[in-house]
Amino acid sequence: MKKKWLLMTALVMMLVLAFAGCSKPAEEPAAPAEPAEGETPAATEEFKFDRPIELIITFGPGSGTDTTIRALQPALEKELGVPVKINNKEGAGGVVGAEFYANQPHDGYVFAMYTPSHIIAAINKTVNFDIFNETIPVARLVHDSNVLLAGTQVPYSTVGEMIEYCKANPDYVPSVGMMSIQGIDGVAAGQLFDEIGIKANFIPYASGAEANAAIMGGHTDMVLTSPFDGKAFVDSGDMKAIVLLAEQRGSTLPETECTGELGINAYIGPWRGIVAHNGTPQEAIDALAAAIERADADPEWNEWKQSVGLTDRPGFAGPEEFGQVWTEYYTIMEDLLAN
């Protein structure tokens, strides 16, 4: 009996050991496969435009906004891989174009170009929609300056001389021509004359050519324009550059004093940027912003910017930075327009 019991015990032990040998411990989860040498992990595929996109330009052909986008157009089309159709919708300081854009499909294939004039329109409520809150900044392209030019008939050649002349002749009110009294031109000129304590008469003109003709004909004392547009008249001796509204002297008119060196707090200048409207797919906005940033490195685009004095101030700004500019300008303009 004892032998039989020992035999059964041995058999049980053998079965236990056999079962244990066949069992396997729980396996650890497999580690992700490492990419082979020279490979990179797969990236999320970027949104691709598959048909032409349209840009609503809210000012007319030949305007600073129009010439800027046409200079960038070849590089941008190369980066996008599709044509860029430019559609000018001018009028009312950019309001006509903005209202037209607001009524277009926001499917990621229609965008617009705005300037600080659209911030002013938001503050003055001259548009029929909430342009400030319904606009999505995509990318700022350039940041220009303004220069005050005078006709050869005026008895001063610098801003200091103008101040002294106005003090000595209190009945004299200088006249200043511009294309947008209710837009960025009016605010920029208003800031300058408020800072120097001189009352001026602002006169609207339909075009830069009309404003320049009024200066040379002696009908208007001064005109507010871009340094590039003004350079030809200064070089020819038909006008005098009074002051550049900028922190530093510009490359286009290096002999002209700037408000920064004179301690005059008047620096407002027109930036030009591409925007989207609420409802535009985020992936399309991101893809366009990325293409603009790549296009901004194009040599021909940069050569053009330098030739027209658009490298004096930092230009390109992506969505986040441009969004900050969009908000900051609203605060600045709101304060200036309240005075």
Rank of each mutant, 00 (worst) to 15 (best):
E195M: 03
I196T: 08
I196G: 06
I196C: 07
G197N: 11
G197P: 12
I198D: 01
K199R: 12
K199H: 10
F202Y: 14
F202P: 00
I203W: 02
Y205T: 00
S207Y: 04
G208W: 01
A209L: 13
E210P: 00
E210G: 08
A211D: 08
A211N: 10
N212G: 11
N212Q: 15
A213G: 05
A214C: 03
A214F: 03
I215T: 05
I215R: 06
G217S: 11
G218H: 12
G218A: 12
H219W: 00
H219A: 15
T220I: 15
T220R: 10
T220K: 04
D221T: 05
M222K: 01
M222R: 02
M222N: 04
V223Q: 08
V223I: 15
L224F: 07
T225C: 07
T225E: 12
S226A: 14
P227G: 10
D229L: 07
G230N: 08
K231T: 01
A232T: 14
A232P: 00
F233C: 00
V234A: 09
D235S: 11
D235T: 14
S236L: 09
G237I: 14
G237N: 13
D238Y: 04
M239L: 03
M239D: 00
K240L: 13
A241E: 13
I242M: 09
V243G: 02
V243K: 03
L244K: 08
L245K: 10
A246M: 01
A246I: 00
E247V: 11
Q248T: 14
R249V: 04
T252Y: 01
T252L: 10
T252W: 01
T252S: 10
P254D: 04
P254M: 04
E255M: 13
T256E: 01
T256P: 02
C258M: 08
C258R: 01
T259H: 09
T259M: 11
T259C: 08
T259N: 09
G260D: 06
G260H: 09
E261C: 00
E261K: 08
G263D: 14
N265W: 00
N265S: 13
A266E: 03
Y267E: 12
Y267P: 01
I268H: 13
I268W: 05
G269Q: 07
W271R: 05
W271Q: 05
W271D: 08
W271K: 07
W271L: 07
R272P: 00
A276L: 06
A276N: 02
H277V: 11
T280P: 08
T280I: 13
P281M: 06
Q282S: 06
Q282R: 12
E283Q: 15
I285G: 02
I285M: 09
I285T: 04
L288I: 09
A290M: 01
A291E: 07
A291K: 09
I292A: 02
I292C: 05
E293A: 14
E293Q: 15
E293M: 09
R294L: 12
R294T: 11
R294Y: 03
R294F: 04
A295Q: 07
A295C: 11
D296Q: 06
A297Y: 09
D298V: 07
D298G: 10
P299T: 06
W301K: 09
N302K: 15
E303F: 06
E303K: 15
K305W: 05
S307C: 14
S307V: 14
S307G: 14
V308K: 05
G309H: 02
L310G: 08
T311A: 13
